[in-house]
Design a protein around this nucleic acid. Structure first.
Lengths: 226, 226
DNA sequence: CCAAAAGTGTTTGAGGTACACCCATGT
DNA sequence: ACATGGGTGTACCTCAAACACTTTTGG
């Protein structure tokens, strides 16, 4: 090992630190998450969560946000999930992973054109390709947390575009919770939160009464609701 | 810098990774947390959270647990809080801190005899000595999270000794929430959770009716309550 | 006029809150 | 007997859940 190959030397061993991001969106009536396939040669390369080493001069949040932007171009809600740090087999190559979770509204959903280096794709929770066990664990935790947060926060609003109908929002809840919700009760509940407001726009589409459109009052801020 | 002084070399810079633990207990009718004072020479050494570098072969949880044991001898409820990783001034000496929170029941509260190297002490939230700004931030977050969790989990039970009276438990809630609670309503609520059970022990103490003692049904497991 | 989604109120039950007195003991 | 904390029940109110029909539009 030469100095030019490994010029960063410490008196104690140090782990490599990466961030991995679970990026969720709602698409085609399903909750999906983004995976990338590194072109490590073979055609059946492993799909993995977007992620990689934290730069030395970069905050953890910034690192996760950079990866989010690199893959999706979107700059949206992002929160730290959990930090995983099982020692690996090789003590000199230990990796610590700070996992993040991001939510993309359907209207900001345009994948960055895949580079030569990797393919990107959205996968439903039921159709995930084989992931490494730590990536499975991260995805599992992110999903649990998302479901739990629907109950006590306005996190689901982060999936909504600028303008949306109440039935769009209801659909998001139904998709994530995997259960139907009574329309009248849902409307009463969500309006009572006072976190969305009516606009005077409406949306006509198809052979039925147009839907009134709403907007999130404080976009990007997730409120805790008791 | 010689090879023997810095034998661990990498092609990219790596941060040092530490764990810091916020250790809470209830003592003398106050919520207190443990700080240590490194004997860095001067008498007015800085008080800091117990913490330090993660060993290379050690899980993050294990690292936090080790520090918990080193300072208190106790092996109790511990959860990961958040990971902080602002880049510091010197890019070669960046530190990433994984913060944990631990809760010690009053009966397991015996501080390890302080070594020559450091003093240890319990401080109320209102009487904290000046901490570094990142330690303040960690303490703040741990406190918020504790208060929030009282509402939707049985985390407060982790403060209880093996056997306790309902009024002891109520007192814990009152201390942390800083508000009085109606005795009858509290008892109805806590019993309806079905997470503690009556024993046939009672405690006599002072000039009044003895208190029935209860026990936590699933010690060490924090239940989420709707 | 028909199909399709949008929109709207009322009743009921569970659980949370407010509130005051009797009980068992030690001195 | 009295002071001290331990222990109990009821009335009310709020909020979540169940439930069905009318409205507006496009074809």
């Amino acid at each position: 090992m030469t100095l030019t190959a490994a010029p960063y030397c410490y008196t104690n061993p140090r782990p490599a630190v990466s961030t991995d991001v679970v990026i969720f969106t709602i698409r085609a009536q399903h909750l999906k998450l983004l995976l990338v396939q590194r072109a490590d040669g073979g055609p059946g390369g492993k799909w993995v969560l977007p992620g990689g080493p934290v730069r030395q001069d970069e905050d953890l949040d910034a690192s996760a946000r950079r990866k989010l932007r690199e893959e999706t171009g979107a700059d949206v809600y992002l929160e730290q999930l959990y930090t995983f740090g099982r020692p690996g087999h090789n003590p000199r190559e230990r990796v610590i992973t700070v996992a993040y979770c991001a939510l993309i509204p359907s209207d900001k959903l345009q994948l960055r054109a895949a580079t030569d280096a990797e393919a990107v794709g959205w996968f439903g929770m039921d159709e995930l390709p084989g992931l490494t066990s730590d990536h499975s664990e991260i995805v599992e935790l992110a999903h649990q947390r998302l479901v739990a947060k629907l109950d006590y926060s306005t996190i689901a609003f982060e999936f909504m575009p600028e303008l949306f109908a109440l039935s769009d929002l209801q659909e998001v809840y139904e998709i994530i919770l995997r259960q139907e919700i009574d329309k009248r009760n849902f409307r009463k509940w969500v309006l009572a939160l006072e976190q969305i407001e009516e606009t005077d726009e409406e949306r006509r589409g198809g052979t039925h009464r147009p839907a009134r459109l709403y907007r999130v009052k404080h976009p990007g801020k997730v409120a805790i609701i008791k």
